[in-house]
Design a protein around this nucleic acid. Sequence first.
DNA 1: CTGAAAGCGCTTACAG
DNA 2: CTGAAAGCGCTTACAG
Lengths: 339, 339
Amino acid sequence: MAGIKDVAARAGVSISTVSYVMSGKRSIGEETKRRVLKAAQEVGYTPNAQARTLRGKPTKVLALSSPLHNYTDYSNYAVFFFALAMRAKRYGYDILLLMHEYGDQELRRVASGGMVDGILLLDVLMMDARAEVAKTLDVPVVAVGYPSNSDGVYSVDLDFERMGREAVDKAHALGHRHVLIIGNISFAYEDGSNYLIRFRDAAMKRGGDCGMVMHFKPSTGFSAADVNLLLDEAFHEDPDITAIFCQTNAPHIANLIDALKQRGFEVPSDISVMAACTYGLLQAQCRVDELPMDPPSVCVRAVDVMMEVLSGQRNDVGNVEMMPSSYKAYGTMSRRRER
Amino acid sequence: MAGIKDVAARAGVSISTVSYVMSGKRSIGEETKRRVLKAAQEVGYTPNAQARTLRGKPTKVLALSSPLHNYTDYSNYAVFFFALAMRAKRYGYDILLLMHEYGDQELRRVASGGMVDGILLLDVLMMDARAEVAKTLDVPVVAVGYPSNSDGVYSVDLDFERMGREAVDKAHALGHRHVLIIGNISFAYEDGSNYLIRFRDAAMKRGGDCGMVMHFKPSTGFSAADVNLLLDEAFHEDPDITAIFCQTNAPHIANLIDALKQRGFEVPSDISVMAACTYGLLQAQCRVDELPMDPPSVCVRAVDVMMEVLSGQRNDVGNVEMMPSSYKAYGTMSRRRER
DNA sequence: CTGAAAGCGCTTACAG
DNA sequence: CTGAAAGCGCTTACAG
């Protein structure tokens, strides 16, 4: 690893001259500049990043805190992941991956250790330990998601509560009065997974307010057997369910529609089905009415917010930015028919 | 950000004493040690990582070079990704994400810049520019995959050529003489995607050696329409095809089986189908005979190799380590029947 | 058992 | 237009 001294020696100048040539912060004689550039080229000089940050320069690295739970859906996850990384790269930032279930030590380590300029949070919980630690760190933290304890971070998220109300209003307008919300894996709610809970709670509340009968059942799994058991229970409790919201994924929803068919229910003539908080359904050939997540836009915005903070353009920690979701209609929601 | 000086001042000792307390490289008086630890605790001291590496300590960061192509399948990809990261974490290493199509500048930047201790390569091409750069870097490079120009890197991969021969031998033993290999997206072969090509070429060669008629058709897409067009072509060229190897993914294979059925071919009675170089089929409810990739084991081994190199246990750059793949039978390959 | 000092590779006032 | 020197926050010989 050639250092600045090697370049200086080879070019016959001082190291400060080399530094200034590289940074362009000083006007340098044409001939000198040429010699330095040539020497740097020849020895393959790359400034040592550690030394630069030790002198107060930014690291140009962002930490990406993405806890992996045993119920984490990799494929879904990767989309957020790559979207953030690609956007960060646009600004010249690299991503330092932080995987850890419930990790907050990690945040302190990389932030206090001076390894990163900022931290991005993924897979945010309602009460997120990381958002708590954020307050004590000297680097900005942007959460892709909206924790209840959001005052130490910048939050960027879809408005899942609004989506919950929108879904219910839609069903209500179509005449549905008994609605089942099929949740994701139950652990996710127990852990406090932010978006699932916000959507569910808002939907349940709105349904109640409109005098509807709302049911919520988290999934035990996504197989046909799991779906069947869940439907057995649900219809036993309330045979009048005519609309189902599903917070899961493409294979599960396919199984759901199969299971309904086996019971003699066609979608949407007998039962209306809507996916919510989902992503990538269409790619998986699953055409269902949907209030989808929009990972790319949310991620892009999150990185942009980070850049605004890092560049000093803003300083309003605790700010929450909600993005809209747009309803995709594929004809699986329809007016309730008497059975 | 509290530094070592703050701790020293608070504890009333010199900074070297603080350093030695933290590292445990010197015996320190009980009372002194206690005071230092207490002070460190109180000010929330985390040693600055940059300063440490400037003094010759390892960064404890590995770069993960994972080019994203427009045909990259995120979900498949993420599995490698996470497997590598999880394993690295076990050894106390963080992962610095490097996304870049055809990036080799990036490798030089992070390696020469002193940001990482080693580099992991994903999505390796037959002639991989990164493997070329590796020779000029002062950090070890481990490729998850086997480039032709493998002499500058450590390679860990499944033995895709062996898999190609195995697939053909299997078909041959079952009486098949006309075989179609349905490839992944054609760009991948044009780019030189290592594993797809090694499998295909080995299979084509073995088939020829055994006097079989081999066909290869890369995919233009994975939709039902794409599959149908491909089959039109293939059966037009050779109506006697009785076995198909498929280097694609679950939705595509489902479409393939549908398309065969529409033509009046049942699997496996009329046509045998095998997936090869695939992953995650079972999770996607796609039960097809398979010579699968095994991302977790390959990734674990790749990180282990990196650790062996970093710890000085080995120094045999250019080494290639092949791992076996095991055939999964689900009954979609059967003895050829006259039609 | 502990401290003063050199030095890692840079950047940037300070001087000329 | 260019150089000598201080200093970022550590680690570790060198001294006592």
